[in-house]
Nucleic acid binder design. Structure first.
Lengths: 344, 344
DNA sequence: TGCAGTGATGGTACCGGAACCATTCTGCAA
DNA sequence: TTGCAGAATGGTTCCGGTACCATCACTGCA
């Protein structure tokens, strides 16, 4: 076949570089490089020839090499487990925005111990990312120091109050959301409101939600009882279990505020099993407004926070900083909405 | 302060390299490099001194540089949207296994046109990944060619039958699963079974499921009617809508097989709204066995496929190949299970 | 005493784009 | 015709870890 003789022959990717393309076209490597990153600097005729050769050879420029010259195009992200929470939507938002900005997203995901978190951050920084997005509780001072001294801009997606941020923050006031929902429930006439969450320890978002719940009760002149609060795993079964626990403890409990829709939905199923009317026997409120919430029978009253948008905004903050549009450490608070449906 | 004089002073990450560390310790750069990748080759005393200097300086080795020498430690992944399907679990499986193997996961996620898919793959290959995992329909010949000529091992997570695989495949036989569920429904006495899926065009997993459904009906001596099939978006609302459409078309329909739990759960809610008994008025079956399925009221009969394991296995295949344990293109079929609960 | 064998360490080039600066060439005003 | 701005292009070096090979010290054995 003449194929291997006509200049379009394909070497494996490993052996192809700007130098090789340059040789085939008869220009300098630098010219090929310019076609890739600053096409306008190259004469149209030359550009066309180079592009043709790139196409013919199936050349894919090596991003590692250009990154080494300080043009890193990686965004490192650390997120909690994707299952059973709004995280998936958020990751989708981050991913979409990254792609649009021409960045690639390096994802580390998991439930972290201090040690594992440190190691993950270290790995990510090894890739010399242009920026980092963390949704996780940076607890260790070492991890924090690592991030600061890396010089990369950092966005934390987290509770916007409290702990001193590393750099930028995107999030909602979990205090406000929980406070608002609790007040909302009270306004609807509920007298004895329980609070269910996933394990709170070390998670400042949940801490803030609980604090908001407490603050609302106090303002209403209701005493806080630890026995009105339960922690369960973030599963539908967990929600069902919490419902049982609380109603057994307090026969007069008339509403429960779940810190996650997943839990709330599980509780609703348990009510069906027991043929308890919702909200007749008990009111149920969730958090997150996931897709199913509106379709649920009965439709779920919940706190709507736009997780997808949160992810997008986090990346946007980063890109703005990288583009020089934004120099300062900023705190972006996204709004929220109490979606009043029928379950409470 | 003496801090800046004692050899432990911190430069920004950008200015730190093995050469700098080597200079501080008084050894050759090569020795530092060895401490990082082949500690056994370095005398314990020297090693200790180097590690100490690394620690003191907060040095994080640049993975870009080592990747350029052919030791790439990136795995590139392309997955469909994370929301409302088992993809999140699968990504979690992939992520866990990558971390354990010391690889970083570059994630591209979205709903792809031929063009966008090609561009995503091109971007990923630009990072010279050690391997690629694709869950998406590689439709364009160009994308395929790109992958093949990259030389990187590729795992497709997909239907295990049909299209010629690029390299390795991990998946389930969607035909078998759908066939089995349809037969199961028939065995339970359902006579007129509808089939609901998300848009099938271009998605061979769904095509295979529908074919399995058809094959079962044919074997049962039941004629296939296109009017028994509906396509809706992958949301709970979509499932509810499909239920309405099918029952209006066929008053005698007695069971519906949904190609996703999300759809089935939406349909169950619609039944509650209409006070239709499940399975008395109509039987509902899903696909995926998501967390909520078992907790649902009534519990959802569904096809269980272990998506987390699928993700893990995909990465494992890749790592085995990279480790030289496995040279051949393999097809790994994971099992499945018909989980018979009360909804059908 | 001599020399092969082994383990520890050093020097240098290289991976592949791109920054930087030098050079060549074109067009046009003086 | 000369001079020169400015566009197009080329040559070289660098980023930072590591493969490859050279060197050196030291042990053991003839």
């Amino acid at each position: 076949m003449a194929r291997s003789e006509d200049g379009g022959d394909k070497k494996p990717l490993e052996r192809l570089g700007v130098r090789e393309i340059a040789k085939r076209v008869g220009v300098a490597p630098m010219t090929v490089s310019r076609v890739l990153s600053n096409p306008d600097m190259v004469a149209p005729a030359t550009r066309a020839k180079v592009l043709e050769a790139i196409e013919a050879a199936g050349f894919v420029p090596n991003r590692l090499a250009s990154s080494m010259k300080g043009n890193g195009r990686i965004i490192g992200t650390v997120v909690p487990p994707l299952i059973n929470s709004g995280i998936a939507e958020q990751v989708q938002g981050m991913s979409d925005e990254c792609q649009q900005g021409g960045y690639s997203m390096l994802l580390v995901q998991g439930e972290f111990t201090t040690e594992a978190e440190e190691s993950s951050i270290r790995t990510l920084l090894g890739w010399r990312p242009a920026g980092m997005i963390l949704q996780s509780f940076v607890q260790s001072e070492v991890a924090r120091q690592l991030l600061v001294s890396s010089g990369a801009p950092v966005v934390e997606i987290s509770e916007i109050k409290g702990r001193q941020p590393i750099d930028m923050v995107v999030g909602v006031s979990n205090f406000e959301t929980a406070y608002a929902m609790t007040m909302h429930l009270a306004a609807k006439g509920y007298k004895r409101i329980g609070f269910v969450s996933t394990p709170i320890h070390g998670n400042d978002r949940l801490q803030q939600r609980r604090t908001g719940y407490h603050a609302a009760l106090t303002e209403l002149g209701i005493e806080n009882h630890a026995s009105l609060e339960v922690e369960v795993p973030i599963t539908a079964a967990g929600g069902a279990e919490a419902l049982v626990t609380l109603t057994e403890r307090h026969a007069d409990i008339d509403a429960i505020f779940f810190s996650s829709d997943t839990l709330a939905i599980g509780a609703v199923q348990e009510c069906h099993r027991r043929a308890w009317a919702i909200p007749g026997r008990i009111g149920i409120a969730g958090y997150g407004d996931m897709d199913l919430a509106a379709q649920l029978y009965p439709p779920l009253t919940t706190v709507k926070v736009n997780r997808y948008e949160m992810g997008r905004r986090a990346v946007r903050q980063l890109l703005d900083r990288l583009g020089g549009k934004q120099k300062l450490a900023t705190i972006t608070s996204l709004g929220f909405e109490i979606v009043d449906r029928e379950s409470a």
